[in-house]
Computed example of a mutant assay.
Amino acid sequence: MGKKQIAFFCSCFLVFAVFAEKNLIKRELINSENMQSINLMLSFETVEIQEYLSSDDVTIEIYGNNKEFIPAIKFADSVLAMKSVPINFWNLKIHISCKVIIYIPSGKKLDKVHVGLSSGSLKMSNINVNKIKLTSTSGSISTQNISAQDFVLIESTSGSIKCDELKAKNSVKAHSSSGSINIESVESDTIVCESTSGSIKIEELYCDYADLHSTSGSLKAHDIAANYFDFSTTSGSIFAEFEIAPSADSSINSTSGSVEIIVPESENYKFHFSSNSGTLRNKIENMRKSLRNGFTYTKTQSPKGGSPAQINVHTTSGNITLDD
Rank of each mutant, 00 (worst) to 15 (best):
C98R: 01
V113C: 12
A210M: 00
S78Y: 03
K123N: 13
S254E: 06
I87F: 05
K299E: 03
E204S: 09
D249R: 10
M35I: 15
G257Y: 03
E33I: 09
A174M: 14
L80F: 11
S142P: 01
N145M: 03
Y269K: 01
S84Y: 03
T137A: 12
S147W: 00
S180H: 08
E260L: 01
V152N: 09
M1D: 10
I252L: 13
T137H: 02
I132L: 15
V100S: 06
T279Y: 07
P105C: 11
V58R: 00
A168V: 03
K26C: 08
E33F: 07
L24I: 10
I238S: 08
K99L: 10
V85N: 06
H95T: 13
N170C: 04
V172G: 07
E51I: 07
E45T: 12
S317A: 12
F229P: 11
L280D: 09
N253M: 11
E165Q: 09
N65L: 08
A72L: 09
L280G: 10
I73A: 09
I161A: 03
F242L: 13
S214N: 08
I311S: 06
V313E: 04
L205T: 02
S171L: 09
A226W: 01
S216A: 09
Q310V: 12
F44Y: 14
T46I: 07
L42F: 06
G179Y: 04
M35D: 04
G179K: 00
M82L: 15
I73Y: 05
S178V: 04
C10E: 12
S106V: 08
I70V: 11
